[in-house]
Design a protein around this nucleic acid. Structure first.
Length: 286
DNA sequence: TAAGTCTCCTGGCAGC
DNA sequence: TGCTGCCAGGAGACTT
């Protein structure tokens, strides 16, 4: 599932193909892939056709490509969304939702949005200045900076985590506190920090919270180096290739398997209608 | 206001 | 073989 490392892999893959390219034609095959777009499919096509694409940007799991001065093509991959760069005329993906023909320097390519579960979306969104003057799509304005952002303020985030009685996993999944973290990397960072997911934020020391955020950053960097996490065909890079970080996971999806640190069987618990994996010996506090 | 729950959606899979 | 129901989860809406 696309979390920050997977989205960053996609952003880097898009850069050489789309930067400076002109959108010549757009085909919306499924309007449900435009849930975040304020208008209908015709409006989307009207706004994006003829646009000259800028440099792909990212905050957390949101990705956007600015065009003109005030607008951007924004994408959120949800659980199964894929942004693919394909040669013109290549075989369609089974869940192809939107196709854009782009041209640059006399060459043509297709930028495709494919999404099996339709939790992802494309949109044309207006760019607005944030509090610190950065231009962000209007739908990204409330998203916090992520740990790979040079301006990420560890102390400010720790302060907010310490002020809450919510469990620490819910807190680091809250994109308004720290962005980019999803279920997989939350479990992995908590395992590395030896923290049980259910502990209230206010019960954890400042030093431990700083350590946890450090582990979030490290697990992101490690996953990025391996091209992200792919369990199946749900996440691939812009060329349709899988990442390899799933081989390096310590707890996520490993119920019943021995902990890599102490050998105790990994446990799975229900958490907010989803799963939380942890080592009951290394991560105490239930 | 904070915290928890529900909804959207599809394909894979287990159980019958 | 075919049907049913469960599971996965990001983000926003909704409820408590």
């Amino acid at each position: 599932m696309p979390e920050l490392p997977e989205v960053e892999v996609v952003r880097r893959g898009l850069q050489p193909a789309v930067f400076g390219a002109t959108v010549r034609a757009v085909e919306v095959r499924d309007g449900r892939a435009l849930k975040r777009h304020a208008g209908d499919a015709l409006d989307f096509v009207d706004r994006i056709e003829g646009a000259v694409l800028g440099e792909p940007q990212r905050r957390g799991k949101f990705l956007w490509i600015p065009f003109d001065a005030d607008f951007a093509l924004m994408a959120h991959l949800g659980m199964s969304g894929q942004l693919l760069v394909r040669p013109v005329g290549s075989l369609d993906e089974r869940q192809l939702r939107v196709r854009m023909r782009i041209e640059r320097g006399g060459g043509a390519l297709e930028l495709r949005f494919s999404d099996q579960r339709l939790f992802g979306s494309l949109a044309v969104d207006r760019l607005l200045p944030s509090d610190d003057g950065e231009l962000l799509p209007s739908q990204v304005g409330h998203i916090a900076r992520d740990p790979l952002d040079p301006a990420f303020d560890v102390d400010a985030v720790v302060q907010r985590l310490r002020a809450s009685g919510r469990n620490i996993k819910a807190l680091i999944l809250d994109q308004q506190l720290v962005s980019g973290v999803g279920n997989i990397y939350a479990d992995e960072a908590l395992w590395r920090a030896r923290l049980y997911w259910g502990r209230p934020g206010r019960s954890i020391s400042v030093a431990k919270l700083r350590e946890l955020l450090g582990h979030v950053e490290l697990v992101f960097q490690d996953a990025l180096a391996e091209g992200g996490t792919s369990f199946d065909a749900l996440y691939v890079n812009v060329n349709g290739e899988s990442g390899y970080f799933s081989r390096s996971l310590h707890v996520y999806g490993r119920q019943g398997e021995p902990c890599d640190r102490c050998g105790t069987a990994i446990v799975r618990e229900k958490f907010m209608n989803r799963s939380s994996y942890f080592c009951p010996r290394c991560q105490r506090g239930r």
